[in-house]
Design a protein around this nucleic acid. Structure first.
Lengths: 238, 238
DNA sequence: CGGCCGGGAGTCATCTGATGACTTTCGCTG
DNA sequence: CAGCGAAAGTCATCAGATGACTCCCGGCCG
């Protein structure tokens, strides 16, 4: 086992067993390195790995701290790399998103508060009022985030936030057909908000699923088709 | 921007723009460090971060290579940290899993091949035959993985695999009540496999959802209730 | 007495140089 | 032509030194 692995698993074990809890500061590099039997170089590399995964957070001059270990902390690490995936993978992500958006919409409809409804309509009006595609995209994100928040599952909400961030990179609203898409999208939002306001989970799920499916169709239509690399049946050469 | 950030984002950018593609070997440390304007220390830390996220893979003595960038490569990085989450977060994960397992079951029922059905029943028979809880858990995992595979969405399949791995850590089958749970679980599997064999998506979804919900109830029942840390309303002190 | 401010200790960030371990390639030998 | 061994290339690790930043504490001033 390499020195980096020793440090990585050692540190992870200290957190898993509770010796280090959320918010704790881990020992200084020199001290921890001696305890784990590695020098500072590999130890720092292991700490960076855990930082990339959202488990710890180094603060220059202060120390390195264990994160709160909320599900969103760990899931957020995906956002840095999900956009490196090829388009074919993105379509698979859309399928997941469609299922989960439908679920959170239904749950939001069942649990909504008056404040949620008010916020949703407020966001819709802002969306319909703006001309800036970037601002519209931002408001769209907040609208769906609000629906997810109302479903009362922060893990699911942050997972969907990551998926949406990946999709937003494509900026479909800036295309020539953008304004037309915008109007359709706005109409979808009204249908969804109304279903939630009516406490109608079935309608909300249907509206959310249709909305995502629509976005997915736009992406299929305006992005290059998935290309066969060349040797179809081959698997990962590893 | 720190040297590590410069190296991390620089390298990530080289991959995002296609200058480095899946399977490519990245330049040697000395050379890349000079190009990015950082010394070897921070560069190595940045490479380790990308390695932890499943984007690159260093091979001692040979070089560092970009991964295939399949969705499962990136999602797999979650498995190292998901088990650090507290139990409260786990229940939220179960809700996601319930929705997604229902979806893959329905899709598997719609697309199943005779081979899939044969494999599923073969796994069920092995499960019912064994006494070893560890082996049973392994077979259970393979059964659900086969269902997910039949749904033809590798991203979703690997996401569910990560979620299941987190759940398996609890080894509920080793409890005194284990054998009884095992029989219930086996019965669930038969219902699900039959629904898939009958090409009945609705029944398959219902069976899968009920199966996950059952597991979830066992976990709630036999694990300590979620404890309030003490100062309820406080948020992350950041 | 209280708030502001400066200094010092503690900690992470970075650079440099050197050595070891492992893989791959290529030329030599039989 | 096959096998093998040496050499080059590359990552892995260690050590030491310096810089940058944060935090706390004690003194000073109002």
């Amino acid at each position: 086992m390499s020195a980096v692995d020793k440090a990585f698993h050692g540190l992870r074990h200290m957190i898993a067993t509770g010796r280090l809890g959320p918010g704790d500061r881990i020992p200084p590099e020199a001290e921890l390195g001696e305890e784990l039997g590695v020098s500072r170089g590999p130890l720092r590399e292991a700490v960076r790995m855990l930082a990339a995964l959202g488990v710890v957070e180094p603060r220059h001059g202060s120390g390195t701290y264990v994160s709160q270990l909320r599900p969103e902390d760990v899931i957020g690490s995906l956002s840095l790399t999900l956009e490196l995936l090829p388009l074919s993978g993105l379509l698979e992500v859309y399928e997941i998103r469609r299922v989960l958006e439908a679920h959170v919409a239904a749950k939001a409809a069942a649990r909504r508060t008056p404040e949620t409804v008010k916020t949703l309509y407020s966001l819709i009006e802002s969306m319909e009022a703006t001309e800036d595609p970037t601002e519209a995209s931002e408001l769209d994100h907040r609208f769906h985030a609000e629906v997810a928040r109302a479903a009362e599952n922060p893990t699911l909400a942050s997972l969907l936030a990551v998926f949406r961030a990946r999709s937003r990179k494509y900026q479909v609203f800036t295309l020539p057909e953008g304004p037309e898409m915008r109007r359709k999208s706005d109409a979808d939002h009204r249908v969804l908000a109304t279903a939630i306001a009516d406490r109608d989970p079935g309608a909300a799920a249907g509206a959310a699923e249709a909305h995502v499916a629509q976005t997915e169709r736009w992406l299929r239509a305006f992005m290059p088709p998935v290309e066969e690399t060349d040797g179809g049946p081959e698997d990962a050469p590893s």
